[in-house]
Design a protein around this nucleic acid. Structure first.
Lengths: 149, 149
DNA sequence: CACGATTGAATCGCGCACGATCTAATTGGA
DNA sequence: TCCAATTAGATCGTGCGCGATTCAATCGTG
């Protein structure tokens, strides 16, 4: 007697498909810069703070070394960043912008404006929606690991 | 003079990370059933309407054959579905639930309840947030292809 | 100083996503 | 009736995500 659940009824699917739509929107904006969406996020993080190690970067982006290591190697290959072992602690890899990587920041404002326009939302609406989605993420994460931290 | 944009300021990142958090939450719920999250979505779609062809399924899940074909082959391999060519139109692959695939629906209510609890939201809050996220997705999609359709 | 525990990254394997291209079946107009 | 256009899937290549494991550097305690 369970009424048929529809994909479109599911909160999880709205997140899943909206996230894909966002990536899809970014793709043609980033392609001319030779960037993928996750690579762009790495640049955003480095523009805010250059020279982070992989772990810090991973904490910001919520990604681990198994994702970041190959991604950063591709970005190094593309001449966007450098990866160097820290002198003080040889375990850490420091990720730094090259001139080319830094220069791309000039394009980011235009891209951000384009995404805002595509969203059809006002700035306060964006802030409010972001707050709600981030709160949901926190709830989901803390439920998965109720005690840790 | 551009103040440093932070990853956490970006609406796109909230979607990106919340979607990952959702998948992360589902993983231990689906693992005992031998399912990945996209495979679970396929089952949800088939529970609502069995015997869809690949294209219909793709329209529902917003995925194309390049993603669905290998995914469905893995599900067929796992004994969850069958893939048969339509008699009327040999181009179409009809995707149907096996008894095993149908039986898993019994687990879905428990999973849905668990996800709702993890979200920390009331039912009306879920509906409202889902509506907002879906509206955003629509705006992003229609911006990418302003005229099509 | 020694050595087990911890930490930071890398590696491996697998399953999505998806742009681009290909093939086969069907349709439709001349 | 024929053949170009369309449609449904399949295939290929690349780049994430991520669980699991490994390895090397560092830390902490005796």
């Amino acid at each position: 007697m369970t009424q048929p659940m529809q994909i479109s009824d599911m909160l999880c699917f709205s997140l899943y498909s909206a996230s894909h739509a966002m990536t899809h929107l970014y793709r043609p904006l980033l392609a001319p810069l030779g960037l993928t969406y996750p690579q762009y996020l790495v640049l955003v993080a480095l523009w805010a703070e250059d020279g982070q190690n992989l772990r810090q970067l991973g904490a910001t982006l919520e990604l681990e070394s198994n994702t970041l290591t190959p991604l950063l190697k591709r970005m190094e290959e593309a001449g966007l960043i450098t990866r160097t072992r820290s002198r003080e602690d040889e375990r850490m890899v420091l990720v730094s912008l090259t001139e080319k990587g830094r220069a791309l920041q000039a394009d980011s404002e235009r891209i951000t404006r384009c995404v805002l326009e595509a969203s059809g939302l006002s700035i306060p609406e964006v802030i409010e929606l972001r707050r709600k989605i981030t709160a949901l993420k926190q709830a989901l994460s803390s439920f998965a690991e109720p005690v840790a931290g």
